[in-house]
């Protein structure tokens, strides 16, 4: 906390005046460790055998095949448009789909998490 900020917000009386976050890293941009960093640090430690920690209770990956739903309507979609990679359910949807501008189609893909080129 910079000096002028303290001046503008008087500290509540119940606080200890001398307290400061000493675990905050000195680099300004990334002051606090993100959860990802915390987990990876935690994983790196030599824990005893039977210890359960945060990252070990993640849900398992799905074993069922993902169903395909239309990006536009949400209906079951048997087709994929090769141009935009969007899924659609019927020809009416296709008609609207080919008229969609790029940002909308990209938005639908990003929403489904399918915008990466590799996937």
């Amino acid at each position: 906390m910079s000096a002028d900020e303290i001046r503008t917000e008087p500290k509540p009386v119940f606080k200890t005046a001398s307290f400061y976050h000493n675990s905050k890293s000195s680099v300004k941009k990334r002051a606090w460790k993100s959860l990802k960093q915390i987990i990876s640090t935690e994983k790196a430690l030599p824990w005893p055998e039977n210890v359960v920690h945060y990252s070990s209770i993640n849900a398992p990956p799905s074993f069922k095949p993902a169903e395909k739903f239309s990006d536009l309507s949400g209906l079951p979609a048997p087709y994929t448009d090769p141009q935009t990679r969007l899924r659609f359910a019927n020809k009416e949807e296709y008609a609207t789909l080919i008229g969609l501008p790029m940002d909308i189609t990209a938005g639908y893909l990003a929403l489904r998490g399918a915008s990466s080129i590799v996937g």
């Binding site: 509540p12 119940f14 200890t16 976050h21």
Partner: peptide
């Protein structure tokens, strides 16, 4: 993870509960 924000929120909580004792 962000304890500076947590501090602000505790300030808010304790202040609105009316606590006015000094330094604790």
């Amino acid at each position: 993870t962000h304890f500076e924000a947590q501090e602000h929120l505790f300030d808010y909580t304790f202040a609105h509960l009316g606590i006015d004792s000094e330094n604790s």
